[in-house]
Design a protein around this nucleic acid. Structure first.
Lengths: 343, 343
DNA sequence: CTGTTAGCGCCTTCAA
DNA sequence: TTGAAGGCGCTAACAG
């Protein structure tokens, strides 16, 4: 705001009409005679007039802004969801406000407050507090308080008892895709690495993994399922642990809680100069495509995830008072990592 | 805005004071008696009152929002800068609005307009139109028009003739770090792959590269400097081309315009089963750390880049009318990719 | 220390 | 088809 910006009144005065008329020309929601319309439009053009969205928001009580809180946008999983949501939101006239909580509960809380004060029309939550098996009471009540004012949308997460929509990838089905694929490749000894016990996205996968091994009557060993974390380093650690625990009774294929963990596993195998396992990752991030070997990965339906999230949020007020939970199908992106042992 | 939210007036009425007093309690910028302060604060607490930032913005003519337009947040280079800027902005009370142009000029234009209407207090530009040797007249005039209303900050880019600040990494110096390092490793035949002729970030690097070879009296061959692009696939293509053009007279080390290109080069070497070169990448993204082998890379000073950008923008109005151009030093993150040939 | 008042820029009845 | 007027929620003089 370097210089006094011109307003609807300036246009009105010079056009010899009222501000209401100018407003109508801009909003195109009421009839205005062709003549005055042209006069007004010409002036708008002449002065390069732009409506003040802040003032409009105050009057209309709608900001056309949506908050998006996630742990860390440098994580490709989150950025892929975010960018799809943003693209779609734009077509609906909404602007997203991205908030990186940096994986801290404090930042999450802070941003919830900021977004609420900024009068966003809804908030999308990913990661963090919505992924805990044992929710923190304070964290839940904060979200609950926000819910009194705005609709909240949770992506790949949920807080029980709170009245809000959610969209999630059916990760149990994703695990099935992974296991099926490996079985079809002839594997009978399949391990699972990464993740943290008590984080729901991990729990869902682990449970599905166990059930599937049972279902397919495959060897199951506790020591083939290694919790470790979500990043590359923990992937390396998982391999170290796997080797330590299993000596000669190793699995032939490994599923990773995400692609990063598989990247770590690849690094560890290389470091230890052991023949790599066949791998299947989760999330189908750019990493999976860009690493060498390329990593076969269970993919989220990213664009659907983003679009559904926005759609449900936008329509949250209109629709009935029930909260919807949408489950979307993942798919498998097959790449070379599943035939490493043959390379 | 599900329910009629309570305002400063509601608080004022129940406290038996005027709205101005409540405002003062909140803003803490004018003396208020301890007694009334407490009364007001208690009510704020009781009703979970939150100030309406939109209304405040309208009155104060400051939104505390900054727009950040970049090509694609899924690119780790951009996301690392963004997240640093966001962290810093938060400490200064500013909220960033991230806008992904998806590498299209149209989206860039659209977002410039949206941000301006939303009354952001400044705009940060990265990539896209600010990186062209031959600027597009329309693109420039759009930015120029924005500049009439707000300060604009360009990161690692510049449009000549426009009055705005810029922050950039000294990439010529970065190239020097890379070449020095390789020379110290004993390399005399150094190639450069990736980038696009006419994109300033590429041009700067290429020019520095050529000058340095000259300076160090190293072999220079046109066919060792391959333009290709900025992603993994173009990195692969660069290797193909390099092999095709050079038969037996190959360089022993390659510098990549960025880390992605090196990832591609690694893939190509693996595919072709040729002994890899020693590599040095640019940008020091997570990829460099996570890939195997890990990639030695010239790093931007990310936090400085983000912080300076925000700082200069915030102080843009206060400071003199000159535009500042800040040049920051890169550093080299040494990893194993520089001893591949010895592995 | 506190209240009154007048906007910020726009939209939306209500009347004409 | 148009204008007048009030108000969105808050802040900043100006009085007191």
């Amino acid at each position: 705001m370097k210089q006094k910006s011109i307003t609807i009144y300036d246009i009105a005065k010079e056009a010899g009409v009222s501000s209401a008329t100018v407003s109508r020309v801009i909003a195109r929601n009421y009839p205005v005679s062709a003549k005055t319309r042209k006069k007004v439009l010409d002036l708008i053009d002449k002065y390069d007039y732009q409506p003040n969205a802040v003032a409009r928001s105050l009057t209309k009580k709608e900001t056309k802004m949506i908050g998006f809180v996630l742990p860390d946008i440098t994580n490709p999983f989150f950025s892929q969801v975010f960018i799809e949501a943003e693209k779609y939101a734009l077509t609906k006239g909404y602007t997203l406000i991205l908030c990186n909580s940096m994986n801290t509960s404090e930042m999450e809380s802070k941003y919830l407050k900021i977004l609420s004060e900024r009068q966003v029309e809804g908030i999308i939550l990913m990661g963090g507090r919505i992924n805990k098996k044992l929710p923190d009471a304070v964290e839940v009540s904060e979200v609950s308080q926000v819910l009194d004012k705005l609709p909240v949308m949770m992506i790949n997460g949920k807080i029980d008892g709170l009245h809000c929509h959610s969209v999630r990838t059916d990760e149990a089905k994703g695990m099935e895709l992974a296991v099926n694929h490996l079985v079809r490749q002839g594997h009978k000894k399949i391990g699972l690495i990464g993740g943290v016990n008590g984080i729901t996205t991990t729990d869902i996968k682990v449970e599905a993994y166990r059930n599937l091994l049972l279902k397919y009557d495959l060897t199951f060993r506790d020591s083939w399922q290694i919790y470790s974390g979500f990043d590359v380093q923990t992937g390396e650690e998982a391999i170290d642990k796997l080797l330590m625990l299993n000596k000669d009774k190793l699995p032939t294929a490994l599923i990773g809680i995400n692609d990063l963990v598989i990247m770590g596993a690849l690094k560890a195998c290389r470091r230890k100069r052991i023949k790599p396992f066949d791998f299947v990752g989760f999330d189908n991030t750019d990493l999976a495509k860009n690493s060498s070997p390329e990593i076969t990965s269970v993919s989220h339906p990213y664009s659907q995830l983003g679009e559904k999230a926005i759609d449900l949020l936008i329509n949250a007020s209109k629709s009935s008072n029930e909260s919807k939970d949408i489950l979307l199908d993942p798919y498998l992106e097959v790449r070379e990592s599943c035939s490493i042992t043959k390379l």
